Structures are given as C-alpha cells and as structure tokens.
Simulated scan of single mutants.
Amino acid sequence: MPLAGPPLLFLLGLLVSTAILGTAFYLEHGIGLAPCALCLIQRACMAAFAVACLAAVVHRPKAFGRRIYGAVALAFSSFGAFSAGRQVWLQNLPREGSSDCLMPLERMLDEMTFPTMVKAIFDGSADCLQVNWSLYGMSVAEWSLLAFAGFMLLSAFQLLRRH
C-alpha cells in the first residue's frame, strides 16, 4: 500500500495545526487562560507552520518545491519545539528561583531592544512556570512540544522523501 502523497500530508499538517490554534484560542478566550510570552511564540510558530502547509497544498509543488516547503515547515516546527521544550523545562524547575512576571509584550517591544527582549522571554518568568490547565496529566506546553515533534517528523519526511 503506498504512503499518502505529499499534498495529503501537507493538508494533514494544515488541519491539525489549525485545530491546535483553535484550541489555543478557546483556552484563552473561552476558559480565560492568559498566554505567556513563550506561549505566544509557540502560537506564532504554529501559525507559520500552518501557512507553509497551506501554501504547499495550494501550490502542489513537484519534488524540489516539496522539499522547500518541507524545509520551511521544519524550521518553524523546530523553533516551536525549542520554545515549547524551554517552557516545559522551566515548568519543572524548583519554584523558589523563579523570576517575576514579564511586562506585557507590547511594552517590551517599545522599551527593549530585540536581543534583550528575546533573552528575557527565554529566561522565563513566573507566568511561564505556572501550569493552570492540563489534559491527561500533561500541561499545554507539553502537548505543544508533542505536536511540534510530530510536525517536525512530518516536515522531515516531506523534505527527505524520494519521488
């Protein structure tokens, strides 16, 4: 039995990432969970991954184009996995060493240089350490890491796949 074709796999990535984004917005607006800065980075990576998959589905590229879309999707899913992994790691640190909450993102953009802002976000803060919601014993960050790992596999498969 042949494996699913490239457009179908990109469509699968698009549908799953869109569902995850919808869930993230439901958790924020429906349940009231405020996203931290690392969560916002993960959302941006998820949205960028979805756009790369959408472009691949619409464009229906040949082998070289499929590899380009696979590489772009792999880059976004890898950065998303890095940020989710960082948040999972921060959530498992002892609480006594945690820093204060970060200032709002809009204020950070106005008052900090970009490298300083990125360092502050990835250093973590108290709002990134909190686990306010879980499903089957896993936090949102852990689910996000799992999803990005799956997207990395899908993207690497598209990138390395032969005709």
Rank of each mutant, 00 (worst) to 15 (best):
C128S: 12
R66C: 14
S17F: 05
L93V: 06
F76L: 07
A149D: 03
E111Y: 04
L90R: 09
Y69P: 03
L54H: 01
A73L: 05
S134D: 14
D110K: 13
R161A: 13
R161D: 06
A34G: 03
A55P: 03
G137H: 01
L3A: 09
M46N: 05
L27A: 01
E142F: 02
F64Y: 11
D127K: 05
V72T: 07
G65F: 10
D127M: 11
E96N: 12
A141H: 04
A52Q: 06
R95M: 11
A50Q: 04
P35S: 01
M117L: 15
M103A: 14
P6R: 14
G80W: 06
P104F: 03
K62T: 11
L38R: 03
Y26E: 05
G150T: 08
N132C: 04
L40K: 07
Q87C: 05
S125G: 13
F82P: 00
V88E: 01
G137Q: 06
A149N: 09
Q42R: 08
A4I: 08
T116Y: 10
F49H: 08
S139C: 05
P6S: 11
M152S: 01
L146G: 10
F82Y: 15
A44P: 02
A37T: 02
S144H: 00
G70A: 03
K119N: 13
A73K: 02
S99F: 15
W143M: 09
D110H: 11
P7C: 09
F151Y: 13
L14W: 14
K62M: 12
C128P: 03
G22Y: 09
G5L: 13
L159N: 01
A19K: 08
L102E: 06
A73P: 01
R162I: 13
G85H: 05
Q158R: 10
L109D: 10
F151H: 11
W89E: 14
M117K: 06
E106M: 09
P2G: 02
L93E: 15
L9F: 12
W143G: 07
A55K: 01
T23L: 14
L145S: 00
I121N: 01
A75N: 00
F76Y: 09
M108G: 09
C101M: 09
V58W: 11
A63G: 06
A156C: 07
M138W: 14
A156W: 09
A4N: 04
R161N: 07
L105Y: 13
G30K: 09
L33T: 00
L12I: 12
L33F: 13
S134E: 15
S155W: 02
G80P: 05
C101W: 08
L11E: 05
A47Y: 05
M117Y: 14
L135F: 15
F10G: 00
H29G: 09
P2S: 09
L15Y: 08
L54P: 00
V72H: 00
I20N: 03
L93R: 14
L54R: 03
G32N: 02
V140L: 14
A48W: 02
D110Y: 10
C128N: 12
M46Y: 08
F82Q: 01
